[in-house]
């Protein structure tokens, strides 16, 4: 594996609820290499999103240590791009101004980054949509704009929290392909790509996108399985129909549910 970008060591998270302490995450240990595309799958409430925020430094772990690029994460770190389930674009700003927001928040000159923002929009298939307001775009297009915003400052790490969860199934599959293309699956060398930590509820989506899938168990969230996805890149639509894809999907389903045989039920 290439050099480690995210190092999680016995990460745990306990928070106080009205009914007493709740253990959301326990003993999460994993190393994620630079340029790796890693998905987190698990049942609702297993702490996937919490883990993502711990890596971003937005929420402190209550035990264990997190390091990104060899530095311990104790506060929000700037070298990440975040994409959430909702695009959360500012309604009063044009798409281009929304993409430039991180520059302003980080105290950088937005004018200097304008060419890059325009180039990102072009790459995301939003060329010409820069001056439009968010409400003039479809949900999928808004989410692409949110991805451009996350990429503006060229962060080495992308944290994506169910970014396609609110989209319809067809748009969703399309967005997965787009994401891989923008990520540089076919035109960038492995270690030139960004590291992606991708939270999803969809097993096929995780298999389709990832180099590795971390399967998490329910509360407290632990890593129940760490599966390598050795499917060839660039990934294609046809791949979804292949036997290898089906086997991997089934494997993750089994790891998630603990079932070895039987019909699908509780997901």
């Amino acid at each position: 594996m290439s050099k480690v970008l995210i190092d999680l060591d016995q990460v745990g998270m306990t928070y106080e609820a009205a009914s007493g302490p709740v253990e959301a995450l326990a003993g999460i240990t994993s190393a994620i290499g630079a340029g790796e595309f890693v998905s987190l799958v698990g049942p609702s409430g297993c702490g996937k999103s919490t883990l993502l925020r711990i890596v971003a430094g937005l929420r402190p772990a209550t035990s264990g240590t997190v390091a990104v690029s060899g530095r311990a994460v104790t506060q929000p770190i700037p070298d990440i791009g975040m994409v959430f389930q909702a695009p959360i674009l500012l309604k009063w700003r044009s798409i281009l101004e929304n993409v430039l927001l991180p520059a302003e928040l980080a105290g950088k000159d937005p004018k200097a980054l304008k060419p890059r923002a325009e180039q990102l929009l072009e790459m995301a298939g939003l060329g010409g949509f820069g001056p439009k307001l968010p409400r003039e775009l479809s949900g999928g297009m808004q989410q692409r704009a949110a991805l451009c915003r996350a990429l503006l400052l060229d962060p080495p790490l992308l944290l994506m929290d169910e970014p396609f969860g609110a989209l319809d199934a067809m748009t969703r599959d399309d967005m997965a392909l787009e994401l891989l293309r923008i990520w540089g699956e076919s035109d960038l060398a492995r270690d030139a790509r960004k590291t992606v930590l991708f939270v999803t509820h969809s097993i096929p989506e995780a298999v389709f996108l990832s180099d590795r899938v971390l399967v998490m168990s329910a509360r407290p969230g632990r890593i129940a399985a760490d599966l390598r996805i050795d499917l060839p890149r660039p990934r294609t639509v046809e791949l979804r129909a292949s036997e290898a894809f089906g086997k991997l999907t089934l494997g993750i389903f089994r790891a998630l549910t603990g079932r070895t045989v039987g019909a699908a039920g509780t997901a």
């Binding site: 937005l58 700037p78 990440i80 959430f84 959360i88 928040l105 980080a106």
Partner: peptide
């Protein structure tokens, strides 16, 4: 304001 939007602000230490 959406909590995620505020997180975005915190990430960039605004």
């Amino acid at each position: 304001v959406e909590a995620d939007m505020l997180d975005l602000g915190r990430v960039f230490n605004a």
